[in-house]
Design a protein around this nucleic acid. Structure first.
Lengths: 198, 198
DNA sequence: CGCCGAGTTGAACTGAATCAAGAAACGTGG
DNA sequence: CCACGTTTCTTGATTCAGTTCAACTCGGCG
């Protein structure tokens, strides 16, 4: 089974020779999350960053009509957190839920902040995470504004080829901002197009 | 005329008693940008954060069909920067252009970074900017995924009532991800709806 | 006065949504 | 290991929101 590990992830990204930090990391709670269980619900204040060691999470909203909208998938090696809720201490509009049985390390958001204050290298790492996040969000907005359903799907395959195999098509559709039926048709069209080329 | 000022903006957000920082801020280049002139073009690497003292900027992309997509409007008191390009040192996919004659303070992105390293309070401020940015982007994605053109327009009015009066409708449409004609119809519908209620 | 760009309106069109029904795949318990 | 129920995916028919293209209006300005 695929698995990642926060400690190795951090040591390869942060200069970890300070004893204090090493301790902080090692004392973090690692929890098992069964498929379908929640790490965050709408209305909660998000108090943790979640690092996925094994499994897969989804980060999503539900609108007034009951429709689900995926903001992010988080497979092993990824962080998920509602930064708006965590940073501004507001009730979240979102849910975080396990799509597969998962192992998740919980990092107190305050600890993240105080580590940033006391360790330069960690601050730089945190900064990089934030910039990465912004990069993803901005590119996605640009895509939503400019691309058709088919183009967005092709982009999804390009960026997350691995997720395609693990995530039900319904949820990919929800990520792309289209209905499952539409995605099915997009895929059909692509298949026949591909055929015609040969 | 509306105007903002980086120094007052910073002193009210950052603990500025360190002489070094004060100097840094005061030595920044303040430039005049005529309407239609560019601060960043597609292909450039973004080397500055732009703080708008007076006027209005637009931050946008142009797709293969030549269509323009607005990522952000920046009136006085706002920052604009392509963080993806600046942080990862990549050529930008975007343009930054003056919508009105503007006065802009240019902040070297490297200076921003090194100030963050040497002053805790500035680091916290910078962190807040990043989180604010993420909040905006995430909310916008959620809206693009879940809301109709009309709902997105109403949200725009709610959040940027002032911009509505300064920005040509075509560009608001581009921000919302619809055509100018569609926005015109959305507005017409809203007008008659409002009428009917009375 | 006449031009020009921005906004509006109309008519036809289209990409995607909706609703409904059937087929395939999946997991769970017997 | 099969059988059954459940979820996921596909397909078809119809509807609808938003696009496209074209013509027209309006207000500002040289």
């Amino acid at each position: 089974m695929n698995s990642s590990n926060l400690k190795t992830f951090l040591t390869s990204n942060v200069d970890m020779d300070e004893q204090i930090i090493r301790e902080h990391i090692e004392n973090l709670k690692k929890i098992q999350v069964k498929k379908g269980n929640f790490l965050l619900r709408q209305g909660d204040v998000c108090k943790h960053s979640f690092f996925v060691e094994e499994g897969l999470l989804k980060y999503y909203s539900i609108d007034e009509k009951g429709k689900q909208h995926i903001l992010q998938f988080a497979p092993e090696g990824w962080f998920v957190v509602d930064r708006e809720s965590a940073f501004f201490n507001q009730p979240s509009q979102y849910f975080i839920e396990a799509l597969e049985d998962s192992v998740v390390t919980m990092i107190d958001v305050d600890m993240f902040a105080s580590l940033s204050l006391h360790n330069q290298s960690f601050a730089l790492f945190n900064n990089k995470l934030l910039h990465n996040h912004i990069r993803h969000l901005q590119n996605r907005i640009n895509l939503l504004l400019s691309a058709t359903a088919e183009e967005r799907y092709l982009d999804f395959i390009r960026i997350y080829p691995d997720l395609l195999l693990r995530v039900p098509q319904t949820l990919v559709a929800s990520y792309l901002g289209i209905t499952p039926e539409s995605l099915s048709r997009v895929r059909k069209d692509l298949a026949t197009k591909k055929h015609q080329k040969q």
